[in-house]
Write a protein that binds this DNA or RNA. Structure first.
Lengths: 245, 245
DNA sequence: CAGTGGTCTAGACCACCCC
DNA sequence: GGGTGGTCTAGACCACTGA
């Protein structure tokens, strides 16, 4: 990549740097290739390391770069499209092996979830923790909140994962009447970050799903997707359009 | 909080700061209230200003804070939910006054859009630029790419906005056969940033919509939503569930 | 004008990975 | 080990806002 001069314009240096690097990535680097380290790059562009890092952070947020401590900065592959319904797999993860059930505990859900579930404050619900994999990499973690009233027959096994699967099995026996979703930006808490192989505070897309059954909100799922590597897709709203490549 | 780890893991200062500030926002501040300036806050917590800013950036990304140069840092209101279909308003913005048509030009669309439209590379298409408002504030900008073949009768007016409305009118006369969407994280380019009253590089949610008609992709919309203030909602997939508050 | 957040610098040390 | 990115500091100056 050429060491272009940074002319003095009203444009911030880090932003100009981002553009220059972005173009270099397009033309001179292959996916997976390792970039020079930050100190060298900063010297090459004649800026402080902090300024260079601002540009790299932008590019990482955009899914162009992947940085790993102790390893280096590499060119990221294009984002993977992960389907986030609403599709045929009405209940969460039915007929799908992309989700792995990790655990199930009984908790008092956070306030926003209580509002969606319309349970009484302080009431305990099942919380099934799952991880979604794609090409062997974890792309999302999820907490599925299921009031005990929704799944009266769920087994009370000792093993959390087994118990979680039992809750899910019960769920699928219900007639799903509808669902709705919301997507917003968040930052990964410590535990989510660890599961997603990211640092705390990493940008994530939070998908909140409400599942309706028996005329009320039967469950609420809060899924946390890596924002750098994922593009959330919402399937065709009409089956006609399946031909487009 | 009782559960201490066996070995106290060194949590980054900025992350701890984020947590402390977040709790303070919950308990001691009202929406719209102005925080102390960054230099004072940094001194109060005994950290460098850059470290404090890292914490503030997190909170701003999460939609908890709003910072404006020359003014100060204020407590942000809860995110507004903006509907992003697929709803009855099948074609973009039909029966909706939340969108304002700004302009219409003929361009050769960027490569990803060309791929979605399946037009020949280098072919010109109409590009309608619109802005979405919510409570008087701009929340999104959009570029709607419409191949000339889709809207043969669109007026060739001089005024860009009039021309854009003409293209949209033509669109709505077509039978919409379906649409699909994708959501991903991006950073605002200079012009989008200006329209959204943000700085370049601000985090945005990019919604890409394909509209299908006449057995092919009739239009592609690329909408850019402010990630700090918006929660994208996807309407009920079944009308049964309209009772939940 | 004074005060705010935004940008930038030149260092330092730490946590992690791999050889 | 030596090399990487991650955190942190203590300054400086700039761009913008509003009185």
């Amino acid at each position: 990549m050429g060491t272009t001069q940074l002319e003095t314009v009203p444009e911030p240096k880090y932003w100009h740097l981002r553009t220059v690097l972005s173009e270099a990535l397009d033309s001179e680097f292959a996916v997976g290739e390792v970039l020079p380290n930050e100190r060298d790059l900063a010297a090459r562009f004649g800026v402080a390391r902090a300024t260079l890092r601002q540009a790299l952070e932008q590019l990482e947020l955009e899914g162009r770069l992947q940085r790993r401590r102790g390893v280096g900065t590499t060119v990221a592959p294009p984002r993977i499209g992960v389907d986030v319904g609403p599709a045929d797999d009405s209940w969460p993860g039915i007929s799908d092996d992309t989700w792995h059930t990790d655990d199930c505990t009984d908790v008092t859900p956070p306030v926003p979830v209580v509002r969606l579930l319309a349970t009484s404050p302080g009431a305990m619900v099942h919380a099934v923790r799952r991880t979604r994999f794609n090409h062997g990499q974890p792309v999302a973690t999820e907490l599925l909140y299921v009031p005990a009233a929704t799944v009266p027959d769920a087994a009370d096994s000792d093993d959390g994962a087994t118990r979680g699967r039992s809750v899910l099995r019960e769920l699928r026996q219900l007639q799903l009447e509808g669902q709705d979703r919301a997507v917003e930006l968040g930052s990964a808490q410590a535990d989510d970050a660890r599961q997603l192989d990211r640092l705390p505070g990493a940008a994530v897309l939070v998908v909140t799903t409400r599942y309706f059954a028996s005329g009320r909100t039967a469950a609420v799922g809060v899924s946390t997707y890596r924002a750098d590597t994922c593009r959330l897709t919402f399937g065709e709203s009409d089956p006609v359009a399946l031909m487009a490549s």
